[in-house]
């Protein structure tokens, strides 16, 4: 081959192929992101992600269930005995060791997401007539997980304590969850 058709040899063509292929691949990858992201929570869903609850009606020893982000949240006003029991536990006996002081901002109020950490059922224990399990907290009827008065798992298949959502007391009688 003479030197003349320099621009038409293999390397130039290879470069064009690779550059085009790389550009298209990146473009296609970028274009798939909106298809994935559209399934994430939308702005309006995120906007209503917090909930304010008036807790002035809850008497000591009683609890209330509210719906937050589609899930049940248990708000319990604990008696001094329950608080005492929750704080007396030896952390070494716990499957998921957590101090009660770290789970309740105010000792009187225990706020947890009411979804069993085993397979997602709703534990019993909010209503006065409900069984509260062997440790005086919550009891999940699906597979028999027992939670104590700090909603920590003590017995049964659940791997973790009931989750404590983010919350803050806006006033002594008003709590904002989320």
């Amino acid at each position: 081959m003479t030197a003349e058709p320099k621009g038409d040899d293999g390397s130039r063509r290879d470069f064009l192929y690779i550059a085009t292929g790389a550009f298209s691949t990146v473009g296609a990858a970028v274009a798939t992101w909106p298809f994935i992201d559209q399934m994430n929570p939308a702005a309006d869903v995120l906007a209503v992600a917090s909930l304010e609850v008036d807790i002035s009606d809850i008497q000591p020893g009683h609890a209330l269930t509210v719906k937050w982000r589609g899930k049940p949240v248990f708000i319990r006003r604990r008696t001094p005995d329950e608080i005492q029991a929750a704080r007396a536990v030896n952390l070494g006996d716990l499957r998921d060791p957590q101090r009660d002081e770290d789970r309740a901002q105010k000792p009187e109020w225990l706020i947890v997401v009411g979804i069993c950490t085993h397979l997602g059922c709703i534990p019993l224990g909010v209503k006065d007539s409900d069984p509260k399990g062997d440790f005086g907290g919550y009891f999940c009827p699906c597979h028999g997980s027992h939670y104590d008065s700090s909603a920590r798992v003590r017995k049964g298949p659940a791997p973790r304590n009931l989750e404590v959502p983010g919350y803050e007391f806006l006033s002594p009688t008003l709590v904002k969850i989320g």
């Binding site: 992101w33 909106p34 992201d37 559209q38 994430n40 939308a42 702005a43 309006d44 869903v45």
Partner: peptide, 8 residues
Amino acid sequence: RDVNYGWL
């Protein structure tokens, strides 16, 4: 307005 990339 709200759905991610919904406008697109």
